[in-house]
Design a protein around this nucleic acid. Structure first.
Lengths: 241, 241
DNA sequence: ACCTGAACACCGTTCAAGT
DNA sequence: ACCTGAACACCGTTCAAGT
């Protein structure tokens, strides 16, 4: 019986990839004669197409067209669509700007900076959110960000076990929140559409829901994000110095 | 210029559906002569197939086969695949057991019960998580659950604006957490695989990450879920009586 | 040796032909 | 009137035929 290979994007699959440095070098150095088809350019084009057309519409034919190539050629660089998408997810994680971490003065600020960094990046790439949910983010960029955040938290004196759990709680909150607010099914004028929807409901059937909706002066998405984040940080303050 | 119809599963789309009661009645009453193809049975079969084979592999041909029918017949009951999946999502939300809400004695307990109810249901249907991320959960069952939870929170004296934001924060946390832990890319032995993966990393490159991983005696998934939930509830206690 | 057009077995969706 | 086989234009993937 043959062992089934690990699915692309899983930890076991990433573990079998070349290490991050080798990957980065390979991506930076154009292939001889065919600079337009180095892996980095393929992944970048794939991300652009997913951003523009969504995960659903993205296809290898579309990608091949965007690269002035054919679908079969893609299989000389990647094992298939899932593998390309795993790199797209990691590319997005690589865009998260955590430079403000080095200017943070305590672990609360470091956690808040982290959450905003991820939130800002995910908002710029809402169409990649279904991919971020489907893949465990342990590619080279995902690991590098995790390392940077945990290093900052430890440096600010947060105990290691709390730091690990806090990172998980915050990133999962950010992903869940952003997916619901900016995901594919959410229209650009999501807040307005939701407000109109709640306004059209029968008050007799949904009294509590309507009272709650009314009490929010506006369904300010970013304010709601901030609210939950504050809850997490404040709750953590009970467990740490 | 024709107005584009709202995408299936969006608030505007649900608003145009028959009201919940009519839907439930239609689903309960078998169609004359073709009881095997009432809408409820189609949605139930679709959910079973998604549970068994995953969102990726699920197809209308598979569904038609499971119903001893043809794909064209499905279009006599639904407008297409997206519409069927929107009902599948709402069906899953309908399985969330919130009976313990009526026995809760304060809003903290109500929130905790809610989070566990959603978490338990999502764990039973991990393959539906990508769908839950892609759709705004405002179908009849989703609305009913939201109403029940908000009613309990208001009854326990939580101010309406806090109740609304707390519900959003908790449900988004649960979705984000469960998707990462039990989503399609996560293997059944996810914890063991992740531990092995971290164990294989270079300590020089990831010192903070490895220290944090080591400090967790075990990567106990359910314990991590509880940790973040506690943070949210505790943080909320600062804002409410 | 390297690349890729064309084919393969699918997919969601449509519609004309059946009853 | 209602249902559905068969077709349509796709999809991810493969491979034999090209250079």
């Amino acid at each position: 019986m043959a062992a089934t290979p690990p699915p692309p994007g899983s930890p076991a699959w990433w573990a079998a990839r070349p290490n991050p440095e080798a990957l980065a070098a390979a991506a930076a150095e154009p292939r001889r004669g065919r600079p337009s088809l180095d892996t980095g350019h393929i992944v970048g084009t794939a991300l652009r197409l997913v951003d523009e057309h969504g995960t659903q519409a993205f296809s290898l034919r579309m990608l091949a067209d965007g690269l002035n190539s054919g679908t079969a050629t893609l299989y000389r660089h990647f094992d298939g669509k899932d593998e390309i998408l795993a790199y797209v997810v990691d590319r997005v994680l690589g865009e998260v700007d955590l430079d403000a971490l080095s200017r943070s003065t305590d672990w609360r600020e470091a956690l808040t900076v982290t959450a905003h960094g991820f939130h800002d990046t995910l908002r710029r790439h809402p169409n990649t959110l279904p991919l971020l949910m489907a893949y465990v983010p342990v590619g080279p960029h995902g690991l590098a960000q995790r390392e940077r955040v945990l290093a900052a938290l430890l440096q600010h004196g947060l105990p290691a076990d709390l730091a690990a759990r806090a990172f998980t709680a915050v990133t999962h909150y950010v992903i869940g929140f952003t997916a619901q607010q900016y995901g594919p099914a959410a229209a650009p004028d999501h807040s307005a559409e939701l407000a109109a929807f709640y306004g059209g409901l029968d008050p007799a059937s949904y009294p509590a829901l309507l009272e709650a909706a009314r009490s929010l002066t506006s369904v300010a998405v970013d304010e709601e994000f901030e609210f939950g984040l504050t809850l997490l940080v404040r709750g953590l303050a009970h467990l740490a110095p």
